Computed example of a mutant assay.
Amino acid sequence: MTKKPILKIHPTPLDRCIDGISFLLLLTLLGTTFYYYNQLPETIPTHFNASGQPDAFGAKSSIFLFTGIAVFIYVLLLVFKDKPHLYNYPTTITEENALEHYSKATKMMRFLNLATILIFFYLQYQTIQTALGTSEGLGSYFTVIILLVSLLPLLFLLPTKKKQITSK
């Protein structure tokens, strides 16, 4: 097994913007949770089925577990975003191609973090709204939207792989 080069990838203005939006969205998630907590009934939805309808309920304090998971995933992705030499790649990483692959991989991780926080924010907000009686669930297109948002970060790697295949 060859050792991958370790490089420091400097963020572009777009990278900083994505990181900033992710952080602000995380703060909004935290703020929303604390703002609505006292208004919530003692029992709130804790799970939704594939149609977006609540199908399990629990104590209102469970809202903090969900928020904690979101914060944990955010921090985990934030830490590993700066360690692209630990990722698996479909090609061999060399000194010559490391910067290109690492830059795209860290950008993908940034978008993955943004997509994850966006999904958690939406789930949390809809859980709160459903508990307060202003919404009846996640909505009928929730599953499709989540799949699309989750797969979006992968689009950053596809053009690179396609270019390599066609150039052989």
Rank of each mutant, 00 (worst) to 15 (best):
M1F: 08
K3N: 10
K4D: 11
K4H: 11
P5L: 00
L7R: 09
T12E: 08
T12A: 07
L14G: 06
R16M: 09
R16A: 01
C17G: 13
I18Y: 04
D19Y: 08
D19N: 14
D19K: 03
D19F: 02
F23G: 08
L26S: 06
L27H: 02
L27V: 07
L29I: 05
L29Q: 08
L30R: 13
T32W: 02
T32H: 06
T32D: 05
T33E: 10
T33H: 04
F34M: 03
F34V: 03
Y37W: 13
N38C: 03
Q39N: 10
L40A: 01
E42F: 11
E42Q: 12
T43F: 01
I44P: 03
I44Y: 05
I44H: 13
H47P: 14
H47F: 08
F48Y: 11
N49A: 02
N49K: 01
P54S: 10
P54Q: 03
D55Q: 08
A56E: 07
A56D: 14
A56V: 07
G58C: 09
G58N: 09
K60G: 07
I63L: 10
L65H: 03
G68S: 08
V71P: 07
L76D: 05
L77P: 00
L78Y: 13
V79D: 05
K81L: 10
L86Y: 15
L86A: 12
L86I: 14
Y89T: 12
Y89E: 03
P90H: 00
P90Q: 06
T91H: 08
T92M: 11
T92N: 14
T92I: 07
E95C: 06
E96R: 06
N97C: 06
N97P: 09
A98Y: 05
A98H: 04
A98L: 02
E100S: 14
S103F: 10
A105N: 02
M108F: 10
M108R: 09
M108W: 13
M108G: 10
M109H: 05
F111V: 09
N113M: 12
N113V: 08
L114P: 00
L114A: 07
L114S: 03
A115Y: 05
T116S: 11
I117L: 14
L118D: 00
I119M: 04
F121P: 01
Y122H: 10
L123W: 04
Q124T: 09
Q124G: 04
I128F: 14
A131R: 01
A131Q: 03
L132K: 11
G133E: 06
E136Q: 10
G137R: 00
G139H: 14
G139L: 12
S140M: 15
Y141E: 09
F142D: 01
T143H: 15
I145E: 03
I146H: 04
V149I: 15
V149M: 15
P153S: 03
L155C: 07
L155Q: 00
F156K: 00
L158Y: 13
L158S: 03
K162M: 06
K163S: 06
K163C: 02
S167W: 03
S167K: 12
